[in-house]
């Protein structure tokens, strides 16, 4: 089953890349936005068919390696094939 993990910096953690993008967007004339945050996405196939089991395993991977829980938040979504 295909799973995506979206990882973003927690509120209050400095995001210099986000700030640089914020500046550039404003230089391009976009002003109708705020609170830019960058993050990363990890997509993987877990060899399992039960959704709860997939979520459980993905969560364990996040806790053990994929996410630095000190500074990052994460969200796991199951991607359903169309």
């Amino acid at each position: 089953m295909k799973v995506e993990v979206n990882i973003s910096l927690k509120e209050g953690v400095l995001d210099p890349e986000g700030q640089a993008i914020d500046n550039t967007l404003r230089n391009l004339g976009y002003n109708n936005f705020d609170n830019i945050r960058t993050g990363k996405q990890i997509i993987l196939n877990i060899d399992e068919t039960d959704e709860n089991e997939v979520l459980k395993q993905a969560d364990k991977m996040c806790q053990e390696l994929l996410v630095n829980i000190v500074i990052e938040n994460y969200q796991i979504n199951i991607i359903k094939d169309k």
Binding site: V13, L14, P16, E17, A20, I71
Partner: peptide
């Protein structure tokens, strides 16, 4: 935690 240098 050690994160990106402030000035990038």
């Amino acid at each position: 935690s050690l994160v990106r240098n402030k000035k990038l």
